[in-house]
């Protein structure tokens, strides 16, 4: 044994050696995904499933690569379609959320507003809102406006309801504390009620992130000339299922990115709130 052996073992206890089990555990999701893709790839080949029914993962991947090729090389123009859908989704997310938060605050703060708009809210809430998509296209045209408005309609309700619930949940003691200082209604709102309602507002925003993309895609399905929804329809029509699925992958990434942004903002702004159970793992 060499002289420096003991010191080496000491180092080892601090930094464990490379362990396959640990590596597998840490990247379990990624590894399962890879196995699944490989199985799918060879399974589909083995059973000779035609491409127009279900293409192999490698073909979907190639479709993605082709799609992202510079516009002058490829006719698919992912960039324009992604941009369209992203603008639609983000606009409806921002607009719908702001309107929903505003309406939620007004409904809670003013009895008159509550009596005035709550019946309509409940009525509209029970309508499947995507069913309004064809009407929106008739009213607002084939451009992005009809898609944004559909997304606004979809994101508005979760925010209204969550914001209202958030305000209703504000501790009575906090409001009484402000009353003892003879704080104005606006001051109480600004310093106590609104920050206190934020955890609920963020829960609504996370839902809205999903709904805003849903609104954009459904709007594009019903009638549009650009966007990932339009792309999916045109690929389907030419039996390019790999292209369709590739667009779906893009939508999934868009959804994840939007949701992650909300989650990031939540962690930053709501550092003080107890963390609710999430499906994020560790």
């Amino acid at each position: 044994m060499s002289i420096d052996a003991p010191s080496r073992t000491e180092v080892d206890t601090e930094r464990p050696r490379f362990s396959l089990a640990r590596l597998v555990n840490r990247h379990l999701g990624l590894i399962t995904f890879a196995i699944l893709m490989v199985a799918l790839e060879y399974g589909l080949r083995w059973f000779q499933v035609p491409d127009y029914v279900f293409p192999q993962p490698s073909q979907i991947f190639m479709a993605l690569v082709r799609g992202f090729a510079p516009p002058f090389l490829s006719p698919s123009q992912y960039y324009v379609n992604i941009f369209t859908t992203l603008v639609e989704a983000l606009s409806s997310f921002v607009l719908g959320s702001l309107l929903g938060i505003l309406a939620g605050a007004l409904v809670v703060e003013f009895k008159g507003v509550r009596r005035l708009i709550l019946p309509y809210v409940i009525g509209l809430q029970s309508v499947p809102k995507v069913a309004l998509a064809p009407l929106f296209v008739v009213w607002f045209g084939f451009g992005i406006e009809s898609k944004i408005l559909l997304g606004v309609l979809l994101t508005f309700f979760p925010l209204l309801i969550n914001t209202a619930a958030g305000f209703a949940s504000v501790e009575k003691d906090r409001v009484e504390l402000m009353a003892s200082l003879k704080a104005s209604r606006w001051t109480t709102f600004r310093l106590v009620k609104f920050p206190g309602a934020l955890p609920y507002v963020f829960a609504g925003l996370e839902m809205a992130a999903v709904y805003s993309i849903l609104g954009a895609v459904v709007g594009e399905f019903v009638g549009g000339n650009s966007g990932l929804g339009v792309l999916i329809l045109s690929r389907n029509a030419s039996l390019d299922i790999a292209g369709s699925l590739a667009a779906l992958v893009l939508l999934a990434f868009m959804g994840i990115a939007l949701q992650r942004t909300v989650a990031f903002a939540r962690a930053r702004i709501l550092f003080w709130a107890p963390v609710h159970e999430t499906l994020d793992g560790d």
Binding site: E171, D173, L191
Partner: peptide
């Protein structure tokens, strides 16, 4: 006014909580 519970605002630091009346 002092309540049975501290009724502090969790998004404010101790100093900011103490200074709440000044802001109001």
């Amino acid at each position: 006014l002092v309540f049975q519970a501290p009724v502090l605002l969790p998004w404010r630091t101790v100093l900011q909580n103490t200074m709440l009346p000044a802001q109001v």
